[in-house]
Amino acid sequence: MTAAIRSEFRKFLSTRMWWILALGMFAYLAFIGLVMAFSFAQASSMSQQDLADAAESGTVLPLGVDAAKMAYSVTSPLGYVFPLIIGSLLFTNEFRHKTITPTLLVEPRRTLLVAAKLIVAAIFGLAIGLLATLGTVAGAAPILSLLGDGAYLGSGAVWELLGWSVVVMAIWTVLGVSIGGLLTNQVAAIIVIIGFTQFIEPIARVVASAVDWLEGIGAYLPGAAADAVLGTSFFGAMGEGDMLPRWAGALVLGIYIAVFAVGSRLITLRRDIG
Protein backbone atom coordinates (compact mmCIF):
# COMPACT_ATOMS: atom_id res chain seq x y z
CA MET A 1 0.00 0.00 0.00
CA THR A 2 2.80 2.45 0.84
CA ALA A 3 4.37 1.66 -2.53
CA ALA A 4 1.09 2.39 -4.28
CA ILE A 5 0.78 5.68 -2.41
CA ARG A 6 4.34 6.68 -3.29
CA SER A 7 3.65 5.86 -6.93
CA GLU A 8 0.47 7.94 -6.92
CA PHE A 9 2.30 10.90 -5.38
CA ARG A 10 4.96 10.74 -8.04
CA LYS A 11 2.34 10.49 -10.77
CA PHE A 12 0.65 13.62 -9.56
CA LEU A 13 3.74 15.68 -8.91
CA SER A 14 5.30 14.81 -12.26
CA THR A 15 2.58 16.56 -14.28
CA ARG A 16 2.04 20.28 -14.68
CA MET A 17 -1.70 20.62 -14.92
CA TRP A 18 -2.35 20.53 -11.20
CA TRP A 19 -0.06 23.37 -10.28
CA ILE A 20 -1.35 25.52 -13.11
CA LEU A 21 -4.83 24.94 -11.66
CA ALA A 22 -3.54 25.49 -8.12
CA LEU A 23 -2.01 28.81 -9.13
CA GLY A 24 -5.26 29.80 -10.82
CA MET A 25 -7.13 28.82 -7.69
CA PHE A 26 -4.83 30.91 -5.48
CA ALA A 27 -5.17 33.97 -7.71
CA TYR A 28 -8.94 33.58 -8.02
CA LEU A 29 -9.51 33.22 -4.28
CA ALA A 30 -7.17 36.09 -3.48
CA PHE A 31 -9.26 38.24 -5.80
CA ILE A 32 -12.57 37.05 -4.29
CA GLY A 33 -11.20 37.58 -0.77
CA LEU A 34 -10.19 41.08 -1.73
CA VAL A 35 -13.59 41.90 -3.20
CA MET A 36 -15.43 40.52 -0.16
CA ALA A 37 -13.19 42.34 2.27
CA PHE A 38 -13.63 45.54 0.33
CA SER A 39 -17.41 45.35 0.38
CA PHE A 40 -17.46 44.61 4.14
CA ALA A 41 -15.02 47.43 4.72
CA GLN A 42 -17.50 49.73 3.04
CA ALA A 43 -20.10 48.63 5.59
CA SER A 44 -17.83 49.41 8.51
CA SER A 45 -17.45 52.98 7.33
CA MET A 46 -21.20 53.47 6.99
CA SER A 47 -23.00 55.63 9.51
CA GLN A 48 -25.30 54.12 12.16
CA GLN A 49 -28.26 55.54 10.25
CA ASP A 50 -27.24 53.81 6.98
CA LEU A 51 -26.73 50.48 8.78
CA ALA A 52 -30.13 50.73 10.36
CA ASP A 53 -31.66 51.48 6.98
CA ALA A 54 -29.91 48.48 5.47
CA ALA A 55 -31.08 46.26 8.33
CA GLU A 56 -34.62 47.49 7.88
CA SER A 57 -34.54 46.46 4.24
CA GLY A 58 -33.47 42.95 5.35
CA THR A 59 -29.71 43.12 4.84
CA VAL A 60 -27.62 42.52 7.94
CA LEU A 61 -24.14 43.72 7.12
CA PRO A 62 -21.45 41.97 9.13
CA LEU A 63 -19.10 44.00 11.24
CA GLY A 64 -15.87 43.35 13.11
CA VAL A 65 -14.95 39.68 13.48
CA ASP A 66 -18.11 38.61 11.67
CA ALA A 67 -17.01 40.51 8.60
CA ALA A 68 -13.59 38.90 8.77
CA LYS A 69 -15.06 35.42 9.19
CA MET A 70 -17.44 35.88 6.32
CA ALA A 71 -14.69 37.10 4.02
CA TYR A 72 -12.49 34.16 5.03
CA SER A 73 -15.29 31.65 4.51
CA VAL A 74 -15.51 32.01 0.74
CA THR A 75 -12.70 29.50 -0.02
CA SER A 76 -14.89 26.42 -0.28
CA PRO A 77 -18.22 27.88 -1.46
CA LEU A 78 -16.63 29.83 -4.31
CA GLY A 79 -13.43 27.86 -4.91
CA TYR A 80 -14.52 24.22 -4.68
CA VAL A 81 -14.45 23.71 -8.42
CA PHE A 82 -10.62 23.73 -8.28
CA PRO A 83 -9.97 20.84 -5.86
CA LEU A 84 -12.69 18.84 -7.61
CA ILE A 85 -10.99 19.22 -10.99
CA ILE A 86 -7.48 18.73 -9.60
CA GLY A 87 -8.65 15.57 -7.85
CA SER A 88 -10.41 14.22 -10.94
CA LEU A 89 -7.17 14.53 -12.94
CA LEU A 90 -5.62 11.85 -10.77
CA PHE A 91 -7.91 9.33 -12.39
CA THR A 92 -8.77 10.79 -15.77
CA ASN A 93 -5.11 11.27 -16.73
CA GLU A 94 -4.62 7.51 -16.49
CA PHE A 95 -7.36 6.89 -19.03
CA ARG A 96 -6.69 9.86 -21.26
CA HIS A 97 -3.05 8.88 -21.73
CA LYS A 98 -3.64 5.13 -21.39
CA THR A 99 -1.18 4.91 -18.51
CA ILE A 100 -3.82 2.80 -16.81
CA THR A 101 -2.24 -0.15 -18.67
CA PRO A 102 1.28 0.16 -17.18
CA THR A 103 -0.33 1.14 -13.87
CA LEU A 104 -2.34 -2.08 -13.68
CA LEU A 105 0.62 -4.13 -14.88
CA VAL A 106 2.75 -3.13 -11.90
CA GLU A 107 -0.20 -3.49 -9.53
CA PRO A 108 -3.08 -5.61 -10.78
CA ARG A 109 -5.07 -5.22 -7.55
CA ARG A 110 -7.59 -2.64 -8.67
CA THR A 111 -9.18 -1.96 -5.29
CA LEU A 112 -5.75 -0.99 -4.01
CA LEU A 113 -5.37 1.45 -6.88
CA VAL A 114 -8.61 3.23 -5.96
CA ALA A 115 -7.68 3.29 -2.26
CA ALA A 116 -4.20 4.67 -2.97
CA LYS A 117 -5.63 7.44 -5.13
CA LEU A 118 -8.16 8.41 -2.45
CA ILE A 119 -5.47 8.55 0.23
CA VAL A 120 -3.11 10.57 -1.93
CA ALA A 121 -5.96 12.96 -2.76
CA ALA A 122 -6.65 13.43 0.95
CA ILE A 123 -3.03 14.27 1.73
CA PHE A 124 -2.56 16.33 -1.36
CA GLY A 125 -5.93 17.95 -0.76
CA LEU A 126 -4.70 19.34 2.55
CA ALA A 127 -1.92 21.12 0.67
CA ILE A 128 -4.42 22.39 -1.90
CA GLY A 129 -6.70 23.49 0.94
CA LEU A 130 -3.86 25.31 2.65
CA LEU A 131 -2.95 27.10 -0.55
CA ALA A 132 -6.57 28.00 -1.26
CA THR A 133 -7.23 29.29 2.25
CA LEU A 134 -3.99 31.22 2.14
CA GLY A 135 -5.15 32.78 -1.12
CA THR A 136 -8.40 34.00 0.42
CA VAL A 137 -6.63 35.38 3.49
CA ALA A 138 -3.94 37.01 1.36
CA GLY A 139 -6.64 38.84 -0.57
CA ALA A 140 -8.94 39.70 2.32
CA ALA A 141 -6.72 40.39 5.34
CA PRO A 142 -4.86 43.49 4.10
CA ILE A 143 -8.09 45.19 3.03
CA LEU A 144 -9.88 44.27 6.24
CA SER A 145 -7.11 45.66 8.38
CA LEU A 146 -6.50 48.77 6.28
CA LEU A 147 -10.04 49.79 5.40
CA GLY A 148 -12.28 47.70 7.63
CA ASP A 149 -12.55 46.71 11.28
CA GLY A 150 -9.36 44.64 11.25
CA ALA A 151 -8.09 41.31 9.92
CA TYR A 152 -8.74 39.44 13.21
CA LEU A 153 -5.92 37.01 12.50
CA GLY A 154 -5.40 36.68 16.25
CA SER A 155 -8.95 35.43 16.78
CA GLY A 156 -9.46 31.80 17.76
CA ALA A 157 -12.78 31.70 15.93
CA VAL A 158 -11.09 32.87 12.73
CA TRP A 159 -8.37 30.24 13.03
CA GLU A 160 -10.96 27.54 13.61
CA LEU A 161 -12.75 28.60 10.47
CA LEU A 162 -9.52 28.64 8.47
CA GLY A 163 -8.66 25.15 9.74
CA TRP A 164 -12.02 23.76 8.65
CA SER A 165 -11.64 25.52 5.34
CA VAL A 166 -8.45 23.52 4.71
CA VAL A 167 -10.22 20.29 5.69
CA VAL A 168 -13.21 20.97 3.44
CA MET A 169 -10.96 21.65 0.46
CA ALA A 170 -9.18 18.33 1.11
CA ILE A 171 -12.57 16.59 1.13
CA TRP A 172 -13.39 18.20 -2.22
CA THR A 173 -10.12 16.86 -3.65
CA VAL A 174 -11.00 13.34 -2.53
CA LEU A 175 -14.48 13.70 -4.01
CA GLY A 176 -12.81 14.87 -7.23
CA VAL A 177 -10.80 11.66 -7.47
CA SER A 178 -13.84 9.49 -6.98
CA ILE A 179 -15.76 11.45 -9.63
CA GLY A 180 -12.80 11.04 -12.01
CA GLY A 181 -12.86 7.32 -11.35
CA LEU A 182 -16.44 7.11 -12.49
CA LEU A 183 -16.26 9.68 -15.29
CA THR A 184 -12.97 8.62 -16.81
CA ASN A 185 -13.29 10.84 -19.86
CA GLN A 186 -11.24 13.85 -18.80
CA VAL A 187 -13.14 16.43 -20.79
CA ALA A 188 -16.50 15.05 -19.68
CA ALA A 189 -15.41 15.01 -16.04
CA ILE A 190 -14.27 18.64 -16.18
CA ILE A 191 -17.44 19.77 -17.94
CA VAL A 192 -19.65 17.96 -15.45
CA ILE A 193 -17.72 19.38 -12.49
CA ILE A 194 -17.85 22.93 -13.82
CA GLY A 195 -21.49 22.60 -14.82
CA PHE A 196 -22.48 21.20 -11.47
CA THR A 197 -20.53 23.59 -9.28
CA GLN A 198 -21.15 26.77 -11.22
CA PHE A 199 -24.65 26.19 -12.45
CA ILE A 200 -26.64 23.22 -11.20
CA GLU A 201 -25.82 23.31 -7.52
CA PRO A 202 -26.21 27.06 -6.97
CA ILE A 203 -29.59 26.97 -8.70
CA ALA A 204 -30.61 23.81 -6.84
CA ARG A 205 -29.74 25.43 -3.53
CA VAL A 206 -31.77 28.51 -4.28
CA VAL A 207 -34.71 26.45 -5.50
CA ALA A 208 -34.50 24.11 -2.51
CA SER A 209 -34.55 27.06 -0.12
CA ALA A 210 -37.43 28.71 -1.95
CA VAL A 211 -39.72 25.72 -2.31
CA ASP A 212 -41.14 24.52 1.01
CA TRP A 213 -41.22 20.80 0.43
CA LEU A 214 -37.67 20.80 -0.97
CA GLU A 215 -36.20 22.67 1.96
CA GLY A 216 -34.89 19.60 3.77
CA ILE A 217 -33.23 18.26 0.63
CA GLY A 218 -31.11 21.32 -0.04
CA ALA A 219 -28.98 20.63 3.01
CA TYR A 220 -27.84 17.33 1.46
CA LEU A 221 -26.40 18.88 -1.67
CA PRO A 222 -22.60 18.57 -1.59
CA GLY A 223 -22.02 22.33 -1.34
CA ALA A 224 -24.45 22.65 1.57
CA ALA A 225 -22.89 19.64 3.30
CA ALA A 226 -19.48 21.26 2.85
CA ASP A 227 -20.84 24.47 4.44
CA ALA A 228 -21.94 22.36 7.39
CA VAL A 229 -18.40 21.02 7.80
CA LEU A 230 -17.03 24.53 7.46
CA GLY A 231 -19.46 25.65 10.15
CA THR A 232 -20.75 28.64 8.27
CA SER A 233 -22.69 29.09 5.10
CA PHE A 234 -21.67 31.92 2.87
CA PHE A 235 -24.84 31.43 0.86
CA GLY A 236 -26.82 30.72 4.03
CA ALA A 237 -25.76 34.02 5.52
CA MET A 238 -27.34 35.60 2.51
CA GLY A 239 -30.65 34.04 3.40
CA GLU A 240 -30.97 30.31 2.86
CA GLY A 241 -32.11 27.12 4.51
CA ASP A 242 -30.90 25.45 7.66
CA MET A 243 -27.54 23.70 7.78
CA LEU A 244 -26.81 20.17 8.97
CA PRO A 245 -24.62 19.71 12.02
CA ARG A 246 -20.91 19.43 11.20
CA TRP A 247 -20.71 15.64 11.69
CA ALA A 248 -23.74 15.11 9.46
CA GLY A 249 -22.26 17.33 6.74
CA ALA A 250 -19.05 15.30 6.85
CA LEU A 251 -21.08 12.10 6.71
CA VAL A 252 -23.01 13.29 3.65
CA LEU A 253 -19.78 14.15 1.81
CA GLY A 254 -18.31 10.82 2.93
CA ILE A 255 -21.28 9.03 1.42
CA TYR A 256 -20.87 10.88 -1.88
CA ILE A 257 -17.18 9.88 -1.94
CA ALA A 258 -17.96 6.28 -1.01
CA VAL A 259 -20.65 5.92 -3.67
CA PHE A 260 -18.43 7.32 -6.44
CA ALA A 261 -15.37 5.38 -5.26
CA VAL A 262 -17.26 2.09 -5.11
CA GLY A 263 -18.70 2.98 -8.52
CA SER A 264 -15.17 3.51 -9.84
CA ARG A 265 -14.10 0.11 -8.61
CA LEU A 266 -17.22 -1.80 -9.65
CA ILE A 267 -17.97 -0.08 -12.94
CA THR A 268 -14.83 1.51 -14.41
CA LEU A 269 -12.27 -0.97 -13.09
CA ARG A 270 -14.37 -4.04 -13.66
CA ARG A 271 -14.19 -3.45 -17.36
CA ASP A 272 -11.55 -4.81 -19.66
CA ILE A 273 -8.63 -2.46 -20.06
CA GLY A 274 -7.67 -2.21 -23.68
Binding site: R16, P102, V106
Partner: peptide
Protein backbone atom coordinates in the same frame (compact mmCIF):
# COMPACT_ATOMS: atom_id res chain seq x y z
CA UNK B 1 6.76 -10.29 -15.95
CA UNK B 2 7.86 -7.19 -17.81
CA UNK B 3 5.49 -6.14 -20.52
CA UNK B 4 4.80 -3.33 -22.94
CA UNK B 5 1.53 -3.16 -24.77
CA UNK B 6 1.36 0.18 -26.50
CA UNK B 7 4.21 2.54 -27.09
CA UNK B 8 1.70 5.36 -26.60
CA UNK B 9 0.97 4.72 -22.92
CA UNK B 10 2.71 7.83 -21.67
CA UNK B 11 1.62 11.10 -20.18
CA UNK B 12 3.15 13.51 -22.70
CA UNK B 13 3.95 16.03 -19.98
CA UNK B 14 6.15 13.67 -18.00
CA UNK B 15 9.84 13.26 -18.62
CA UNK B 16 11.17 9.87 -19.61
CA UNK B 17 12.77 9.57 -16.21
CA UNK B 18 9.53 10.42 -14.41
CA UNK B 19 7.69 7.83 -16.45
CA UNK B 20 9.94 5.17 -14.89
CA UNK B 21 10.06 6.80 -11.45
CA UNK B 22 6.29 6.72 -11.02
CA UNK B 23 6.31 2.94 -11.28
CA UNK B 24 9.56 2.23 -9.43
CA UNK B 25 8.02 2.09 -5.92
CA UNK B 26 5.43 -0.47 -6.97
CA UNK B 27 7.87 -2.51 -8.98
Amino acid sequence: VGATLEASSFHPGRSGLDHLRIYAPQV
